[in-house]
Amino acid sequence: MNSEKTDNVLQTEDLSIGYLSKRKKTTIAQDIQLKLKSGTLIGLVGANGIGKSTLLRSLCGMQKHLGGTIKIKGKEIHTYHPVELATLLSVVLTEAPASRNLTTTEFVSLGRQPHTNWMGKLSELDRSKVEKAIEQTQIADFREKHCYELSDGQMQRVAIARALAQDTEIILLDEPTTHLDLYHRAAILKLLKKLSVTTGKTILFSTHEIDLAIQLADEMIVMTKNKTITGSPRELIRQGHFDALFPKDTISFDADSGRFTIQN
């Protein structure tokens, strides 16, 4: 095994993504080259409908990619057994959990599923991992509450705790800050930053909070119609890639402040 491969936890080569129906092949984005290192926080930005969710779904194996390769720890994603993959990669989805009747602790404990026996019984190790996840996300205050009693911000923390309890090297989050106010958006992103530093996990999140992501992320993936570029926020600003995100007649990117401003 060469050292370059083990360095990148998640790597794609010439990846093209989209939908495959009976006859038609709809490519949404192509030529995506990603190299995600461990212990980094990566923000994925792009306009609505550009394919952020499709990219995330492809990266976690929920959706088949159309071409190229996705390698997790140097091994092609489709060669993993589903349970083995679940011990390497966890997700936080935009969709609300189907059942709202679980308590916070039960919800987080479900993250241990790939590690438990056929009955799903929690061992001492499983319990301690659940406790740690609850502690890291600071949700102990409402640990016995049911999900239907939680606010959107609390629910998002619980969902992140579940992914943490799954104890994977990679966590993918699809728009973890939607429906939240500015304070909670910043709080969630700060939490993700802290987790990537303290746990050494690779955390990839898609977001519309470009300003906040620029301030916190180690690396960013910018998806535009024609190409997908990765780099550190500073590099991307210098190369002017945020300018190309949206049509310039409505908003434009100010490189000095790292913010978008409305054009009059």
Binding site: S90, A98, W118, M119, G120
Partner: peptide, 23 residues
């Protein structure tokens, strides 16, 4: 009874269940 683990995963929805290794 033998399916109770998968049934619990399904409480989170199909996509979450899939992401936890449920076929």
């Amino acid at each position: 009874f033998f399916s109770s683990k998968s049934l619990n995963a399904l409480l989170l929805g199909e996509n979450y269940a899939k992401s936890m290794g449920v076929r």
